[in-house]
Amino acid sequence: MTQALIFDMDGTLFQTDKILEVSLDDAFERLRSQNQWEAETPIEKYREIMGVPLPKVWETLLPDHSLEERERTDAFFLERLIQNIRTGKGGLYPHVQDVFGHLKENGFSIYIASNGLIEYLNAIVDYYRLDQWVTETFSIQHIKSLNKSDLVRHIVDQYGMTSGAVVGDRLSDIHAAKDNGLNSVGCRFDFAREEELAQADVIIEDLLELKTLFPAKKQGIK
């Protein structure tokens, strides 16, 4: 029997907020310098759609720009995010290592399933040495549909998961859990929305609560 926890990355494990605004502003400053953008950086609009795959982000933020320009902006934005990660400007949410250590010591397998791109996720995992606890990190790039439920299904099938939970802050995480017969743990963190969290099986305010929800005897959610 394989019991595991699948974690979202942005807004769940990684405090994306710490590098998001400066990286996004860099991307739009580039557009301004090329006379392709005049308004302020749409940071609030990005917050509203946080958690969707990046191609959909640029469709929303740059609806009047060409696909080629969206791709160039995406590539530049990714470069800035990774640079900010590698220089320590980001940060994990409190107690990530503590909780991961507890889960690992008590026989739980840990995975990451994110709408973030592979290079971005690898930068976070490498910088914070998460691979000492995490079995494998999966990007939405691994799934043609760009659907979080399909990504979680891929993990479930590959590792023969029979029980466990998806831990995340947005509706896509909650749906991914339910669509795959897993429990959903909603994180009331920076990007969470109350109407989405209402659909989760359990809501937590701090990752430390996972130590109670998933104790040593693997009793699961109480």
Rank of each mutant, 00 (worst) to 15 (best):
G116R: 03
G107E: 01
V96L: 08
S114E: 03
F108H: 14
R70S: 13
I112H: 04
F108W: 13
T135A: 02
N84F: 07
I140S: 12
G88M: 09
N115K: 02
W133I: 05
G91T: 02
D74I: 11
Y93G: 04
L78I: 10
Q97S: 14
H102C: 13
Q83E: 15
H102V: 05
N106L: 10
Y120G: 03
T73R: 00
Y128A: 06
G116A: 06
F77E: 08
K104D: 06
Y128L: 09
T87S: 14
L78C: 13
G116T: 00
P94W: 06
T137R: 04
D131S: 08
S114D: 15
T137P: 07
Y111E: 00
Q132N: 12
G90L: 03
T87L: 02
E136N: 01
P94K: 03
I124N: 03
E119K: 15
A75H: 09
V125R: 11
E79N: 05
D126N: 09
N115Y: 07
P94T: 04
Q83S: 15
L81K: 09
A75K: 13
E79R: 05
G88I: 12
N115T: 12
A75I: 05
Y111T: 04
L130A: 07
R72F: 04
L67C: 05
I124T: 06
E71D: 08
E71C: 02
T87Q: 08
K104G: 07
S109D: 14
E79A: 09
E68D: 14
I112E: 13
E105M: 12
A123R: 05
I82A: 10
Y128H: 09
Y120M: 02
E71I: 04
F76V: 01
I110Y: 01
N106I: 01
G91F: 05
Q83G: 15
H95K: 09
G116Q: 11
Y93F: 15
